[in-house]
């Protein structure tokens, strides 16, 4: 594992890659495996039919952590990986799958992770994902994740994703299919600056009675950056769906938010909200009356907005 990977891991996975104890992990560096460990209840193996992993989490896994970070540490790397997570009935785990891309030369660095989650009945997964781009090279830093989730009855998947900055281009696609009483909770935060672009697409199908999805996206578009937010929630039965896109604009930032709802059942209860605008002047003034400069106030408001 090289030093750049170690630095990126600290940011995206809250680990430095040196001491995992008995926790299951797989560290991917520039398209190769830089370290792997299974645990008693979490088995990590190579995918038999291509690049990537099969992660089997047994029902006995309770409160376990699983680390699956990926790093690209130089230009001219176009990493593509397919990871499948099979979560046993009643399991309860936290999966940390951050990604950092770094280039200091003129070549692009790209990571494209295609993750599929199959949650068993009554299982619970907290999925945490941080993305960052670093390095001063002129090559583009790209991260294009695809996440497909299949939630069995009574299962819960919480996705907490954040793009910290420095990623020139990202296209995030997330789809979900939910059975009875399953819940999908997505909390996404994206920061773009300069000429960066970010596109995020959600398509969730609520197929089981009393299933529910809650998608909250908060974004900040600064500089000349551009973001697109699309969400489609299909309520095919008695269910609840909520989509919220809040965006703060600064400088010449632009945002296009397009939430879409489809109700295919009389008892489908679906809501979407979208709010885009610059930081309210009264918010800046309030923090200035506490002694912050206008710039400090703006940063505090953005930091809080993206953290919340």
């Amino acid at each position: 594992m090289n030093e750049t990977t170690k630095e990126l891991l600290k940011v995206v996975s809250e680990i430095d890659g040196t001491d995992f104890g008995n926790v299951a992990f797989n560290i991917r560096e520039d398209g190769q495996c830089a370290g792997r460990q299974s645990s008693k209840y979490v088995k990590i193996e190579n995918k038999p039919d291509g690049p990537g992993l099969v992660i089997n989490i047994s029902s006995e896994a309770q409160g376990e952590m699983v680390y699956i970070p990926a790093c690209v540490t130089h230009g001219d790397v176009d990493d593509l990986v397919y990871n499948d997570f099979y979560v046993g009935d009643g399991a309860d785990v936290t999966i940390v799958a951050g990604c950092g891309v770094h280039t200091t030369d003129g070549h692009d660095a790209r990571h494209n992770g295609i993750h599929r989650f199959f949650l068993g009945k009554g299982s619970h997964v907290l999925y945490k994902e941080k993305h960052i781009g670093t390095g001063s090279g002129k090559g583009l830093k790209k991260i294009d994740p695809v996440t497909d989730v299949y939630l069995d009855e009574d299962s819960v998947l919480e996705m907490d994703t954040i793009q910290l900055g420095g990623v020139d281009s990202t296209i995030r696609k997330t789809t979900g299919k939910l059975k009875a009483r399953a819940k999908l909770i997505i909390h996404e935060r994206i920061m773009t600056d300069g000429d960066e672009t970010a596109q995020t697409d959600f398509e969730v199908s609520l197929d089981g009675e009393d299933s529910g999805v809650d998608i909250v996206s908060r974004s900040v578009a600064k500089g000349n950056s551009y973001q697109e937010y699309h969400s489609t929630i299909k309520g095919n039965c008695r269910c609840t769906g909520h989509s919220e896109c809040d965006a703060i604009l600064a400088d010449n930032g632009r945002v296009n938010a397009a939430p879409e709802l489809y109700a295919g059942d009389l008892d489908a209860s679906l809501i979407h909200e979208a709010a885009i605008g610059k930081i309210a002047g009264e918010q800046l003034i309030k923090l200035q009356t506490l002694g912050l400069t206008e710039q400090e106030a703006e940063q505090k408001i953005i930091d809080g907005f993206l953290r919340g």
């Binding site: 908060r218 506490l290 505090k300 408001i301 809080g304 907005f305 953290r307 919340g308």
Partner: peptide, 15 residues
């Protein structure tokens, strides 16, 4: 004034 993402604790610490 209301803030999305700033907690009561944050605001008091800033003050």
């Amino acid at each position: 004034v209301r803030f999305k993402g700033l907690r009561v604790r944050d605001l008091l610490n800033l003050a």
